[in-house]
């Protein structure tokens, strides 16, 4: 079996743990992951998130997902070899000033994100941590790639209880913030995150940015209204007396909040940001929404 240095060469450091390397005439990106903990001990072996990330990525083959090529071990370190994305692929795609040059580009990128999420859900995979920092974009070719699957996991239907402390706070869905239904959440959680990213594309700032669960929920309810039995069946029986609910608020008019959106766009956004996870649009249906006509 070939060693790391025999298989890959011409190492060029990109960041502290990321290298560009070569094999034959192809370039790759190599990410070094240590399995040691803070005390420099491998108490529990390979961390669970690495096992999940690698195992899930090994099964995926999609143009909008960064492809894992190889995994090598050397002592306490793991070397993950990914397809090489050139300098034109910018991380944290919403911070790229060129991102907002063309309105059609936003629609194009949103379509690609939803298409990828639908692909993952059809393979029983929840992303759980979809945010702009994990999305790489090549503005010239208009190709988008989703990276970092550390929080992803497969799910069984009906879903079990999974950890509720997943994902970046700003992109967490109300059901996760509520820990609604005993930490059970499903595919709509990822669709909510896409809705937040869509809003951020349009406003050039995070749609919700509360520093805590309570403040974030308050921001959500300020825009979308406080949930009721009509809008979210069962919400009052679980969270009726809950301090998280706050005083009742009416939903704002999304057409005024997002004047740049046409009626189809407003319809899609409102369906992705539906408070009730049962009524939220699925990624599969969102991809077929009239908003994407002509994409």
């Amino acid at each position: 079996m070939l060693t790391l240095r025999e298989k890959y060469y011409d190492f060029d450091q990109i960041s502290s743990k990321v290298f560009k390397c070569r094999r034959d005439d192809q370039f790759f990106t190599m990410k070094i992951v240590s399995i040691l903990n803070e005390e420099n001990q491998a108490n529990n072996g390979v961390p669970y998130w690495i096992i999940r990330e690698i195992s899930i990525l090994k099964e995926l083959d999609h143009i909008n997902i960064v492809r894992l090529i190889d995994v090598m071990t050397d002592g306490p370190d793991l070397f993950l070899v990914f397809e090489y994305l050139d300098n034109e692929f910018q991380a944290d795609f919403l911070k790229n000033p060129k991102m907002f040059m063309y309105p059609q580009m936003k629609k194009e990128f949103l379509y690609q994100i939803l298409n990828t999420v639908a692909y993952l859900h059809a393979r029983k995979i929840l992303l759980r941590d979809l945010r702009p920092e994990n999305i790489l974009v090549n503005v010239r070719t208009q190709v988008l790639k989703i990276a970092l699957f550390g929080a992803a996991r497969t799910f069984e239907a009906p879903l079990e209880a999974y950890s509720s402390s997943v994902g970046c706070l700003s992109y967490r869905s109300p059901e996760v913030l509520f820990q609604f239904g005993c930490e059970k959440y499903s595919t709509p959680n990822d669709v909510w995150a896409v809705g937040c990213i869509f809003g951020e594309m349009l406003l050039h700032r995070p749609l919700f940015s509360g520093p805590s669960d309570v403040e974030l929920l308050d921001e959500i309810f300020t825009l979308l209204g406080t949930p009721t039995e009509e809008t979210w069946p069962g919400v009052t029986s679980i969270c009726g007396t809950c301090a998280l609910m706050g005083p009742p608020q009416q939903p704002k008019d999304l057409a005024k909040e997002f004047p740049m959106l046409n009626p189809d766009g407003l319809d899609l956004l409102s369906k992705m940001l539906c408070l009730c996870p049962n009524y939220r649009i699925s990624a599969e249906d969102a991809v077929k929404h009239p908003y994407f006509k002509g994409v």
Binding site: H121, A122, K124, F155, A157, P158, L159, G181, K184, Y185, S186, T187, P188, P233, P277, N278, R280, S282, E284, D285
Partner: peptide, 9 residues
């Protein structure tokens, strides 16, 4: 109407 059942997929 049960999102935990992932009926669409």
């Amino acid at each position: 109407d049960n999102e935990l059942a992932a009926v669409e997929y």
